[in-house]
Design a protein around this nucleic acid. Structure first.
Lengths: 144, 144
DNA sequence: AAGCGACATGCGAATGACTTGCAACTGACT
DNA sequence: AGTCAGTTGCAAGTCATTCGCATGTCGCTT
């Protein structure tokens, strides 16, 4: 509970920093984002926000998400063949595994891979701005 | 030259295998794909194909690309904030670095990373269907 | 507490990248 | 050469997301 409040605070602060007003609809969206521990898309977020406060348009959801992303407090992921999904950036950096059968998103992180990526870029005279590593997977059938 | 012809053959064979006809427009598109050593998008491909044979619609380009992708002879990449780009799958498996300033695509491959990915999936009870690793990079400024 | 100006909202229209319906063609097998 | 299912181009349709604009409202001022 208090953890979620803290996240909501952080998101709110980010919007204030961006110099925008905290309206009824934005407040609702922020708390929805703070509570989410999955990877909802814009429509999911709208639906959840409307449960708190009726009347939030998709336009507003998108506009606010864009602002939050610019402020770096949420992350937007564009997985294959699906609309963008969002998550607050409170978590540590991680990559994603997507179960191609259920669409479930599983997070993971691996330090050696991160290091190798940096080395590869470095060796070619580049620095990484950001990267994207997605494993599209399927649950292994248990051996009969 | 002969290398490109061989690739064209392979693409043509894939279409035949799919049970479709090799029309004038498809033949043009196939040779364009075989020649390309970059990562053109659908519009680039249409433009290049029209230089060989006038009159190829974008619909046909898309339809044929879809078929080729289904047959596994070309790869489709959806990089951030851009339309899909294609390449023939004659090359060895590789991942991509995208220069965020020039949009240039640089290929690379790294065996240790591949191995680590497989291990991660394995450890969580999954098998990888396919994966995507993209490094969005910027050229390092030479030290003054 | 009413006034105000700037920023926000919601709606519908616009966008961009594809995809699809359909009537007019055309490969390729007979 | 004949046939006809597979193709093509064009226009219209999708889908996710963005934008224009008239109306609404936040939050500071008097």
């Amino acid at each position: 509970m208090t953890e979620i409040d803290r996240r909501t605070e952080k998101l709110t602060a980010a919007l204030r920093r961006a110099g925008v007003r905290i309206t009824r609809q934005r407040a609702a969206l922020l708390s929805v984002l703070a509570e989410a521990d999955d990877h909802p898309d814009a429509v999911d977020l709208q639906r959840r926000a409307e449960e708190k406060v009726p009347g939030i348009s998709l336009s507003t959801v998108y506009r606010t998400l864009t602002e939050l992303e610019n402020q770096g407090v949420i992350l937007r992921h564009q997985f294959e063949g699906a609309s963008a999904r969002y998550e607050h950036s409170e978590t540590q950096h991680h990559d994603h595994m997507i179960d191609v059968e259920t669409n479930e998103v599983i997070e993971f992180s691996n330090e050696p891979i991160e290091r190798l990526q940096a080395e590869i870029a470095e060796a070619m005279g580049y620095e990484i701005v950001h990267h994207r590593l997605e494993l599209y997977v399927r649950k292994k059938k248990p051996l009969a």
